[in-house]
């Protein structure tokens, strides 16, 4: 499956079918990040139930230094 992840086309491994699995594949489970799928913010409690489908636009954002 191919998704648009943080603006780049990425081919995901077969077992990555949920937001939770996607975050785990980058070892981000414990990190402070926020996920948006197709323009909708995914609540942290819904990571496991939220499927990822081919062609999804996914953003993973975090807090960086800024003024």
């Amino acid at each position: 499956m191919i998704v648009q992840l943080n603006g780049k086309k990425v081919e995901l491994a077969e077992e990555i079918t949920t937001v939770r699995a996607l975050l785990a594949s980058y070892s981000l489970q414990e990190k402070i990040v926020v996920v948006e799928r197709n323009g909708e913010i995914i609540d942290r409690s819904a990571y496991e139930q939220t499927p990822i489908a081919d062609g999804d636009r996914i953003e993973i954002v975090h807090f960086v230094g800024g003024g």
Binding site: G7, K31, E59, I60, V61, F63, V64, G65
Partner: peptide, 20 residues
């Protein structure tokens, strides 16, 4: 403290981060 919201760099997702 102010912060900005940006895409995580997925090439280096474990990069040290001030907030943490």
């Amino acid at each position: 403290l102010t912060f900005a919201i940006r895409r995580l760099n997925l090439e280096n997702p474990q990069e040290p981060n001030f907030l943490e």
